[in-house]
Design a protein around this nucleic acid. Structure first.
Lengths: 338, 338
DNA sequence: AATTAGCACTCAAACCAAAAGAGTGCTAAC
DNA sequence: GTTAGCACTCTTTTGGTTTGAGTGCTAATT
């Protein structure tokens, strides 16, 4: 357990480093946090904190910079949260209560405001696989294809087609539609994935169109897989505002990381309550960056996560406050719509 | 008009500069292009080319680098085109003849291969506004909304919904659908934009549902507007492979340029035949970069453009050859599908 | 026992001067 | 018209010196 003074010093180092991106000296700490101590005393404490693994000295005549461990304890215990100004809060509220037609639009707006206000790339994950199927429609498009539409309790999936077999009548299409509805209505989108096509059953009813049915089911599976989760990233270029990415080699590394959609999804997809901070090597993907996230409602019955990603030396006070605030506003906005 | 020797020298400077990114000296030119001249002779020529505006000398004791004008004449007259190896051609063919279900998939594949093979960000513009409407469908989703589907001769637009008025019967939906088809079938998607809603006509037929009809037409307009052109950009991070973007300030500038979708669209959207090269300040947007593009077929009756964007000092020989080849393969692939 | 003043020490960063090297332009000869 | 030769310019490299920030340690102080 750290003494009060050690905490104060550690906090001052992290705060200072976040602000200046340079090693922090004993003298600076004295001035900013402990004017009643001498710099020598602080030096002793710094030395202790270093051997405890919280601080790093780039070279002997430099100040100290925080280790990953220091950022961790800073975020968890030391920092005092920032309160967003009323203007800022109002701005966010205004932006997020704007009338939107689709969830996608909402996602876009959330990502935009998050990125603008934190000056970091914003991540928004939409989870879709728990919707319950209300009905399935097969729409003959008169061009030999049918549009497969899945209506769920909160949205409409409509990106799949099936080729119709020759000599297919609209009556048969209707039968197929009925059959699909009988089986799938009430199930979850994600249930498609585990569904095994019952050849014998259909063989009896539709004979030759067995293959066609199988194809529809496969289409539905594919559709549900591609729509089970969707990650939007907005404002990648914001990282150029931060000194750690002055060297474009570093910028490339960062952008490559953000591009690893599946891995980022995994990081965002955890059901921990409240705002979570993942730092640097705590997760192999993050090497050199941190991620701040929170679970949110993106629409009626549509849940997801929002977050930002950026350098380990990000302004956690502010970023955590923003992510927290936006997620709360979002939940409020969504729930007041009912 | 340039003498043969001047051409040879200018070509050597551009070739050398493209390869090494450093100023090219008289000696190098002698070795690479004119072993029968002395470096002094070449120096005289270089001096002449400089005063003609083709070359720039960064400082007195440096070699020459090409001006924008030099790149222009190089691309138009001097360079000898590269021939893609058979392996490479086969690779592209294989990649582009792979079975795809939608135009979007095709666009993705084209962009991917283009970017990978040129080591530059790839641009693919899909033009959609000339499709001819085959039919319009209104599909009752049982949740108070109807899905508006526009079927054209080559694709299906299906991203729009309308809220159904209360007490709306499926019979009325059918009537509405018939009415829409009567008016719009045979027209082009782009025609929606100029269509004025004929209040009186509908008033007679459907009385109270006037507003609803207007809403459908507005929806159709919006749909056709958002789908009239679509730009995909793939492989932005490829620019980090090029020395001009070692400084991340430059990289940011470039990425900001690429982000200006509308302006990039304008550059891609011109109906010049064959492969076109736009260099640097020839277009205000391009400041510091060049763009190589070609018009292509992306599907039956779907035209568009493909291109890459990168530093002025890009390998035009190769890039032009690649863009050319891919556009030809694409046209071949699409036409052989019929 | 904790704190602090004082000082020696280290090391990065800034500075400067000299040397090396690349490449030119010009002149005079071919 | 071409070229050898040379003086000149300017960048780049090198290496050494200085400066200054900041520490760790010791010894004195509270």
């Amino acid at each position: 357990m750290l003494s009060e003074r050690k905490k104060k010093i550690l906090c001052a180092v992290v705060d200072g480093y976040i602000e200046s991106a340079t090693p922090i000296s004993s003298k600076e700490i004295m001035q900013s946090a402990l004017p009643n101590c001498s710099s020598a005393t602080i030096r002793n404490e710094l030395s202790a904190l270093e051997s405890m693994g919280y601080l790093i000295q780039p070279h002997v005549s430099a100040g100290r910079i925080p280790s990953q461990r220091a950022f961790r304890i800073y975020v968890d215990e030391l920092m005092n949260y920032e309160r967003l100004s009323d203007e800022e809060t109002n701005l966010i509220v205004k932006y997020l209560t704007h009338q939107v037609d689709t969830v996608e639009e909402m996602v876009e707006r959330v990502a935009k405001v998050l990125s603008e206000i934190t000056h970091l790339p914003a991540l928004v994950l939409k989870e879709d696989n728990l919707d319950i199927i209300t009905s399935i429609k097969l729409l003959d498009l008169d061009n030999g294809k049918a549009l497969v539409v899945i209506v769920t309790d909160c949205r409409v999936l409509k990106d799949s087609f099936v080729d119709l077999p020759e000599h297919f009548t609209s009556g048969m299409l209707k039968s197929a539609q009925d059959w699909l509805n009988k089986i799938f209505v009430g199930k979850r989108i994600s249930d498609f994935l585990n569904y095994n096509f019952p050849f014998e059953l259909v063989n009896d009813q539709f004979g030759d169109f067995n293959k066609f049915f199988k194809r529809i089911v496969d289409t539905l599976k594919r559709e549900s897989l591609t729509h089970s989760m969707q990650l939007s990233t907005v404002g990648e270029n914001k990282i150029f505002e931060h000194v750690e990415y002055k060297d474009s080699e570093k910028a490339k590394q960062f952008l490559d990381t953000v591009e690893q959609k599946e891995l980022i999804c995994e990081l965002l997809y955890c059901d921990q309550d409240g705002t979570t901070v993942k730092i640097d090597k705590e997760d192999a993907v993050l090497e050199g960056c941190s991620l701040v996230k929170s679970n949110v409602q993106l629409g009626e019955n549509i849940s997801g996560s929002i977050g930002v990603i950026g350098p380990v030396r990000m302004n956690y006070k502010r970023v955590v406050a923003v992510v927290d605030k936006i997620s709360k506003i979002l939940n409020y906005v969504i729930n007041s719509k009912r």
